[in-house]
Amino acid sequence: MHALVLMLLAADPTVAELLAKYDSIMGPAQFEAEATMTATREDGTARTYGMKFLKKDQDKFRLWFSEPAAVKGQEMLRNGDNLWIYIPNLKRATRVANRDNFQGGDFNNADVLRVNYQADYDGKLIDSDAPDAWCIELKAKSKETSYDSIKLWMRKSDFQPLKGQYFGTSGQMIRSATFTDHKEFEKGFTRPGRIVMQNELVKTRKSEMRTSRMTLKVDVPAQRFTQADLGK
């Protein structure tokens, strides 16, 4: 027991290490995944969206929606700072912004299609209110990030994210997230299977992202991340 405590103390990670860990868990360099998002609106109705993800390199994302029927065939693409949504009926891709809501839920597009806290935020370890978790305070490096600051709790034992709080420039909490159902999707790769994003301004609104499958071993052709590939 004593030895374990010593070992943990010795292994006190730096903020940079924690952020690198977060990025590698929430947004590995490349992966393929399937997920569903259930968005609960203020009138109590809920809608579930099915989707498939593909990611490569730092900022290349593809996303295909499979349900409900209304959004089936819609696709999204991120390449660097550019984000498009492809609407099959229009046969056209429209640019969307990071700050726009992801399918009208409580995640924004950047939450889902950009995970790069190392690049976007400066971190600082702060006193944690949970004994088994590190708490980091992230402050935006630029004005382009979707949040001004983030408070993040990561489990000490395996660096899995547990909780997040997201703040606007005014310091008001806009969203909060809980990360649960941590699961080893692939040997050596564990991440939360369920993220609940609570809208802190409209308490009746929340969105839940469940990952059903995720694999890092994919071979992704580069052309998947071009506009020409949308709708194919």
Binding site: R99, A110, S142, K143, T145, S146, S170, I174, L201
Partner: peptide
């Protein structure tokens, strides 16, 4: 009431 908007650069913000 909470009023939410975002900066031209895309930063979400909210004030009471």
């Amino acid at each position: 009431v909470s009023v939410q908007s975002s900066s031209p650069a895309g930063r979400s913000n909210a004030i009471d």
